[in-house]
């Protein structure tokens, strides 16, 4: 291992290394995420149940992100309805289907996905920062020495809490966006709330798709964030790296699952 003289790479080798290294890095992260995923499922099904901790984490997720999500959902609702209303006025000249279609697209797409992206930002970074700081201050090692597995002790409660809370927060977010849209339609275009508030466009497939999306996001966020946190190393730089990694990976995971599930919905559910 030690006797080799240092080898100076030539241009071709450097090029190939530069070409391959992103794949190596991405592959390593995938492996880490799936390892944590496997362990989480295993411990979630067979490990100790710590419902008190789950409750605490659920409270923290809700408490941390409620105001944030209300702000985002509100401003998003206003903007979307305003833009859609202008287009509808210009092209169709009829604003009656606005409310129903808006609710439908909210349930199918913007409600769950934007909420999940916000939770990735708020909760995902929080989980990664917390677990990452525990790794670099040796608390995770101490946990293992105490006989607890870090995934079981740290990720599993957050996993259960997130599965439930992503759904709850999505409901809140849909409601707030819809109300904001309703007010916008009323104030900007004079659409009566009675016309706006209609369920006529919503089909059962929309609700099933919403449930599938929120569950998938709820599972993905704590696992991806936990994997980022657990792979932190070094001092405060390591924590920063883990947090950054977590936002990006969680958001990409959400978008990827969204493409997958929307495609599934298009092909199967919403015909």
């Amino acid at each position: 291992m030690s006797a080799h003289p240092p080898h100076k790479p030539n241009v071709l080798e450097l090029f190939l290394a530069a070409l391959g290294s992103p794949f190596v890095i991405v592959g390593e992260q995938f492996r880490e995420i799936f390892k944590v995923f496997g362990l989480t499922v295993q411990y979630a099904l067979h490990g100790r149940r710590r419902w008190k901790e789950v409750w605490l984490q659920a409270y923290r997720i809700g408490n941390e992100s409620l105001v944030f999500i209300v702000c985002v959902a509100g401003s998003l609702g206003v903007t979307l309805v305003y833009q859609a209303g202008l287009q509808a006025e210009r092209i169709i000249g009829d604003l009656t289907p606005l409310g129903g279609l808006y609710l439908q697209i909210l349930l199918r797409e913007f409600g769950p996905t934007i909420t999940a992206l916000m939770i990735s930002t708020r909760v995902g970074t929080g989980i990664a920062a917390e677990i990452g700081s525990m790794v670099v201050t040796e608390q995770v090692d101490a946990l293992q020495m105490s006989g607890a597995h870090p995934v079981e002790y740290l990720v599993v409660p957050r996993f259960w809490a997130s599965v439930v809370m992503v759904f709850c927060l999505t409901c809140v977010s849909v409601l707030v966006s819809w109300l904001a849209g309703l007010l916008t339609a009323l104030l900007a275009f004079g659409v009566s709330p009675y016309t706006f508030a209609t369920l006529s466009f919503v089909i059962p497939g929309d609700v099933i798709l919403l449930l599938m999306k929120t569950t998938a996001y709820g599972i993905a966020i704590p696992i991806v964030a936990g994997a980022s946190g657990l792979s932190a190393h070094g001092g405060s730089e390591g924590v920063g790296w883990a947090t950054t990694q977590s936002v990006v990976n969680c958001s990409l995971a959400v978008l990827f699952l969204d493409v997958l599930l929307s495609g599934f919905g298009y092909l199967v559910l919403l015909r």
Partner: peptide
């Protein structure tokens, strides 16, 4: 494996360099 390691660590104690107290 991890489960067996957990069992083995029951007979080990470690004092960490930077305390590593759960904050």
């Amino acid at each position: 494996r991890e489960r067996e390691l957990q069992a083995l660590r029951m007979r080990l104690g470690m004092v960490f360099q930077n305390y590593a107290l759960f904050d």
